[in-house]
Design a protein around this nucleic acid. Sequence first.
DNA 1: TCAAAAATAGACCAATTGGTCAATTCTATA
DNA 2: TATAGAATTGACCAATTGGTCTATTTTTGA
Lengths: 215, 215
Amino acid sequence: MAVSSTTDSKITQKNRQVILKAAVQAFAQNGFKGTSLKQIADDAQLPKTNVLYYFPSKQELYLSVLENILHIWNFRFDQATVDDDPATVLADYIAEKMEFSRTQPFASKVFAMEVLNGAENFNSAFLTEHRRWMEERVSVMQQWIEEKKVAPLEPEYLLYHIWACTQHYADFSAQIRGLKGRNMSKKDFKIATNNLVSLILTGCGLTVPDAYRSL
Amino acid sequence: MAVSSTTDSKITQKNRQVILKAAVQAFAQNGFKGTSLKQIADDAQLPKTNVLYYFPSKQELYLSVLENILHIWNFRFDQATVDDDPATVLADYIAEKMEFSRTQPFASKVFAMEVLNGAENFNSAFLTEHRRWMEERVSVMQQWIEEKKVAPLEPEYLLYHIWACTQHYADFSAQIRGLKGRNMSKKDFKIATNNLVSLILTGCGLTVPDAYRSL
DNA sequence: TCAAAAATAGACCAATTGGTCAATTCTATA
DNA sequence: TATAGAATTGACCAATTGGTCTATTTTTGA
């Protein structure tokens, strides 16, 4: 659904992408109910009727946006096993999620707002996959703990904390901008990432890899 | 503004509170634009006209809700000095914020959504106070670091991470519920708090106080 | 007790909303 | 080049929105 099928014409593909891009930003700024089709159409520089030509309804458009986001989300999930080095795996995962927050803040915000509003638009396929992923990660981390490689923290909560911190830089960028007086630069993100990696890895009893050492 | 003035009658005070309570939940679930006065009125079991009798407009009602939240927010900010024990101060602050997430999830969600949507409704007074508070906390933590009591992490980012993790349990409760299959109990919050305290304090090179030890 | 003020409430309004329909223009291909 | 299908577009519609106005009821305090 989310991926444009190959049977679509060039024009359809382009217009659908233009609309989706405008929609992500609009939904991120005003939520589902707060966003009007006119606003999306204006942003996409298309008449409103055209938006409804490419997406049957506002709800369907929103679901497409959401599906795209979840697709990226899952794509980026790591595939670590027990034999990998916990420090490297966790540090890289944190860095990857930070990079997502930096480059795709609107996607993160739409996801956040959907969850905030009750997450009633996630389909059961996503939830199933999400749970399975979680179980597998928890299992790997539990083995790390048994092997005394990682401090005995609940893996489930550790994952929540990693998500919370990394997504915070996208979702709460307005608050950070207010405090800093400016938007976070690429360099700021680098510093934040290293600080976060250091905090969490040290908190887990791990040594911080050299690549994340400068503070 | 947010605090009901003493000149208001009993009826006014009660009705304003009933409306505010309904409004917090409604705004948390649908955002500002997505919430209708009719919905708030129905939740408050009052005719819509009555809501507009107590609050001049939807915008003013929203600002009142926001001001109440910010008031609580600042109220709870700690007042630690250099001479206090970093471990105790940070652990208690984390626990306090977790308790806020547990008992006032809707307030946290409205705050989150306001920031998510650009934080354009925060008045400059809040921003000024927010910045001042931040500077003072950062200053205290920097001195702790200089005295080698705390690991050399950027205080600013450490605070972001504490906010992110603690608020996550309110703002992303729907996601956690989806993964856990149920809402978090009081006991779950206790476990999450101890895990978080352990993670962050250890990450800062501090010893976890006994009160937060059981995992 | 009784009048002034506070509170309640229904009827109503203009603006915006998501969405439909029919007419027109463009594009690909046989 | 002719034509079928794809794409564009403006006119339009019913429903919902925030908000006003006016009339009625309830409460308060001299």
